[in-house]
Design a protein around this nucleic acid. Structure first.
Lengths: 210, 210
DNA sequence: GTTTAAATTAAACGTTTGTTTAACTTTGTC
DNA sequence: GACAAAGTTAAACAAACGTTTAATTTAAAC
């Protein structure tokens, strides 16, 4: 994988934020250049084109996601439900930690026209499903998890819930519980709330207990 | 509310599909005009501008959603869980029935810049939450539902799951169970699968039963 | 210090964008 | 059939778009 200079990283970071906030077509290369404080031509010079810039963002984040997934494969000492809970927390942390990229994924996965980026998204989702499924099936065969479980739908709810929370972040602030929190406290509050909810949800579906 | 002529409705419908498939900024008024088989100028003539066309789509669908919500308020003879199940099915039917609009909502709710459309979205979500909450709290007071429930998160999972299913539609087709179904059969298969999943999920969280 | 490649720039490129214009046609009213 | 309003059109508009050019500066190597 290619290494990026400070300037290139600045472009990538700014572009990621703007693509997330205004969409790919809603963001001009001039916007990116201005906010990243570089000349417009540098974007083509470094990344080739606006499209390839988006692809670069995806390659950059996807590589990190691959590493992330491989790390998750290494906790074999835990009980099945502990594994699931650990996975949930790590997913939440990962996804809320790269909210801008998750926004872009939310947007891009809606594109009906075949895009090189859309395939990558579903590929990644497939890998995450492949991470969850063996844990569930193993526990099912051991009689720990309930048999009749739609793992695919469960993952859909996991991703869907987090993807809904990300844009809700700006809005839910009006909640009385969260009114007096600063940004960091609020982020932690949100994480805990989603985590508690999703763990309860998975436990109920998988074990029929509470 | 204003009535639309056949031609105006054609523009609205085409625009809705294109905005859903390629995004607002990814769709040009020329694209819309061509697919709707009208002159470009007619769009400005009827709707004022591209932005106001999007607003018109929202007003059009939102009005329907309001009616939809009001209809849901009138089944008072059911048991609480029956009510919830009925709501889930109606939500699924509504949202999968207007997939293009739901795609636009998914996209627009991500916009960080204040848009007249974003407020409408959260307003509507609030109304749907206001529909679910009293059912839950009433049943809680009657001792039928469990006390410790995060209704807001439950609704987030409901919307999030369905919003994830919509773009997954094109992809999940590879599932062995769904491989030989035609379009209508597949839509029904998806509906049932989401419905079963969400009902199980709500029942588990709300009643601690299966 | 000279040479070579990489980095950086302002300006210009040709398209495409959303919108408007002005002329023309249709429709309905008296 | 004349008149007015609404509908429809091709053409033109300026602005913004992504990208490229050609000139210049910086950095590295010998």
């Amino acid at each position: 994988m290619e290494e990026y200079s400070e300037k290139q990283l600045s472009i990538l970071t700014v572009a990621e934020r703007l693509f997330a906030d205004q969409g790919f077509h809603g963001t001009s290369v001039r916007d990116i250049a201005q906010e990243a404080d570089v000349n417009i031509a540098m974007i083509s010079y470094y990344f080739g084109s606006k499209d390839k810039l988006l692809e670069s963002i995806f390659k950059y984040r996807m590589e990190a996601s691959r590493k992330f997934i491989n790390e998750l494969l290494e906790n074999d000492t835990m009980e099945p439900l502990e594994k699931i809970n650990s996975l949930i927390d790590r997913f939440i942390n990962k996804m809320l930690g790269e909210q801008y990229f998750q926004c872009i994924m939310s947007r891009e996965q809606l594109n009906s026209q075949q895009s090189p980026v859309r395939d990558l998204i579903w590929q990644l989702k497939g890998e995450m499903l492949g991470l969850m499924r063996p844990i569930v099936t193993n526990a099912q065969e051991a009689g720990i998890f309930y048999k009749d479980v739609d793992v695919e739908m469960l993952m859909t709810s996991l991703f869907g819930t987090i993807h809904q929370v990300i844009p809700a972040k700006h809005i839910l602030r009006t909640n009385p519980e969260a009114k007096d929190l600063n940004d960091d406290e609020y982020r932690e509050y949100l994480k805990n709330r989603v985590s508690t909810h999703l763990k309860k949800l998975f436990k109920a579906i998988l074990t029929h207990e509470f």
